[in-house]
Computed example of a mutant assay.
Amino acid sequence: MDLHRCPKTSDGKQIFLPNIFPGIVQLCYAGQGDEPGAGTYSKTSGAASRFKGPDFQIGFSSGGPSTKSVEWRFLEWVYLAGGSVKFVGADLGDTVELEVNAPASPATSVDAGTGNAGKFEIIPSSGLHMIVPGPLCAVFGVGKDWDVDLTELEEDGNEDEIPTLTKVVPVPAPDGDGCYDWDEETYAVSENLQGKGAYNLFDFAMNLGLWTPGLCLLGSGLEQMETANIKTKRMLPQWTYKVTAVSHDPADELKIVWRILIGRKNITKTGSLGS
């Protein structure tokens, strides 16, 4: 950094501002996702592209449903740092919340002992399993009765430089004891046979967090939820975002729009310009 070029106060002190994002990403106030969370494409001819998913808005009308949701994904990893919500016509009982979810990772049942993976039930009799690489099955006391394809990709018709996503969905292992790793450049998922990976795979959908749990709305206003002095969270592209709004009385015609503050390597609609 050339300190001679930094802005200074009137008494000559250097001015430094906090930066919530690392230098490899650019600031982006997103008002659209890249694609619907269900994995089908809108506003395009079938090809994946940035910022061509659902608009970040929900409106209610008399006689309509009292709960509405918008679900989306970003097709590349992003840093999430907050957002804002603007609303008109809210009454007591009206709420909005943002959640992030990891879909289930697919696994195929095979003849006993012939698979490349096993399933370890994380809670007895729950039917909820962590997927374990074949070489670690003995450690977890499970059989190699499942096949997991780490290289199988989603169909996305992608013709630009947005990476195609794997069908398996990595979930963070906070203690660094995961069975899998994920590469931020290639988006590849690989086994970690030392049990020191950053991620795990599960055969069930998992909620990763509620960012605005039951945020109450009243009247009309703007809720700012952006701050510079937090540690941003890296969000994987396989994860889905969902905003759910509840209107106590749809006849009040509540309207909600929001934006998400993210850091992203590329902020063009297609290709790698701006990286």
Results as ranks from 00 to 15, higher is better:
residue 137 C to L: 00
residue 138 A to P: 00
residue 138 A to T: 03
residue 138 A to C: 01
residue 139 V to I: 12
residue 140 F to L: 06
residue 141 G to K: 03
residue 141 G to P: 07
residue 142 V to N: 01
residue 142 V to W: 07
residue 144 K to M: 07
residue 146 W to M: 00
residue 146 W to D: 00
residue 147 D to H: 05
residue 147 D to G: 01
residue 148 V to C: 05
residue 148 V to K: 03
residue 149 D to F: 03
residue 149 D to C: 04
residue 150 L to P: 04
residue 150 L to T: 01
residue 151 T to N: 10
residue 151 T to E: 12
residue 151 T to K: 12
residue 152 E to S: 12
residue 152 E to V: 00
residue 152 E to P: 00
residue 153 L to P: 03
residue 155 E to R: 12
residue 156 D to Q: 13
residue 157 G to E: 01
residue 160 D to T: 10
residue 161 E to T: 14
residue 164 T to R: 15
residue 164 T to Q: 13
residue 166 T to S: 15
residue 170 P to I: 03
residue 173 A to N: 12
residue 173 A to P: 11
residue 173 A to H: 13
residue 174 P to E: 04
residue 174 P to A: 11
residue 176 G to W: 11
residue 176 G to L: 11
residue 177 D to H: 14
residue 177 D to W: 11
residue 177 D to Y: 12
residue 178 G to K: 09
residue 179 C to T: 06
residue 179 C to I: 04
residue 179 C to Q: 14
residue 179 C to V: 03
residue 179 C to N: 15
residue 180 Y to Q: 05
residue 181 D to F: 06
residue 182 W to R: 09
residue 182 W to P: 02
residue 183 D to Y: 04
residue 183 D to H: 09
residue 184 E to A: 15
residue 185 E to W: 00
residue 185 E to G: 04
residue 185 E to P: 03
residue 186 T to R: 05
residue 186 T to E: 01
residue 187 Y to A: 08
residue 188 A to K: 08
residue 189 V to R: 09
residue 189 V to W: 08
residue 189 V to Y: 05
residue 190 S to K: 10
residue 190 S to E: 12
residue 191 E to G: 00
residue 191 E to V: 08
residue 193 L to E: 07
residue 193 L to I: 13
residue 195 G to I: 09
residue 195 G to P: 09
residue 196 K to E: 15
residue 196 K to W: 05
residue 197 G to K: 10
residue 197 G to Q: 01
residue 199 Y to T: 05
residue 199 Y to Q: 11
